[in-house]
Write a protein that binds this DNA or RNA. Structure first.
Lengths: 143, 143
DNA sequence: CCGCATCCCTATAGATACTG
DNA sequence: CAGTATCTATAGGGATGCGG
């Protein structure tokens, strides 16, 4: 059967544990693009995630192998979260969702010039630029 | 600022109305890859969506401009749903989510050979093949 | 039949307050 | 700082209704 022909049974795995939940996506976004590593930092997002929800989602992500949790040696802050390779490979998907949203769902919030440039470059940079960001994440998150 | 440098404020629009909800994603998947167009057909998915939930999600998708709703002239079945261009342009994202899931979240269900080939071709075919499927969807869904 | 709308009921998500 | 406990609102399953 042709890969473009409709099928009665669709074998595409939508990974609903991740993409079917809004808070999970926001956590991944912040870890990928805001340099946040600590519980408290992730709490401060504009979307006002509740602490119990954040704790729940972090635990789920660790459970699914998308994050690892370890102690922070410098500040004696107990938890520092790191993206795994499995999570880092989600970056292209996250960027493309952002690209689609930027085209079709213009954000109500006013973005400053630097932010607009940031998004545009990430989108137009393509796989080359995504790979660079992925390498940066590997350098920081993978030991 | 470099587009790969972490930002305190992340301008990426995750389109949570779509990717933050599991049922919405399943409906889009079925419309894109299973050739389903009618309410009743969409009810029959393996995931057992309830009729009230399906009705709600279809209404939301129409409201957000991802679907149009019209009468079926042939069978006097009242509703037939069509993807808009806005929705068709989500196909690459959906396929890439599937690619990631196929690599990192091996499906518990046993897929038959045809299904496995279908997924593999869709993933390895790349943007060229996605564009072909998008054109096929345009031919069927856009008047 | 088909495409929903509505009602009821329960499980769970999530906001707020609190704790080690 | 990094979570837990508690309490409430809501999502969603299942049945049924209803006009066409």
């Amino acid at each position: 059967m042709s890969p473009t022909e409709p099928r009665s049974y669709c074998p595409i795995n939508l990974s609903l544990e991740i993409f079917g939940d809004a808070w999970t996506l926001l956590v991944l976004r912040d870890l990928m693009f805001s340099g946040k590593r600590h519980f408290r930092e992730l709490l401060q997002s504009d979307e006002r995630i509740s602490s119990n929800i954040l704790a729940d989602r972090l635990a789920r992500l660790v459970e699914h192998g998308l994050l690892t949790r370890s102690g922070d040696p410098t500040h004696r802050q107990k938890a520092i979260y790191s993206l795994t390779e499995k999570a880092i490979q989600l970056l292209p998907v996250v960027v493309q969702i952002g690209a689609w949203g930027s085209r079709w769902v213009p954000d109500a919030r006013k973005l400053d010039a630097a932010a607009r440039r940031f998004v545009r470059q990430l989108q137009e940079g393509g796989p080359r630029l995504w790979a660079r960001r992925m390498d940066e994440l590997r350098a920081v998150h993978l030991r």
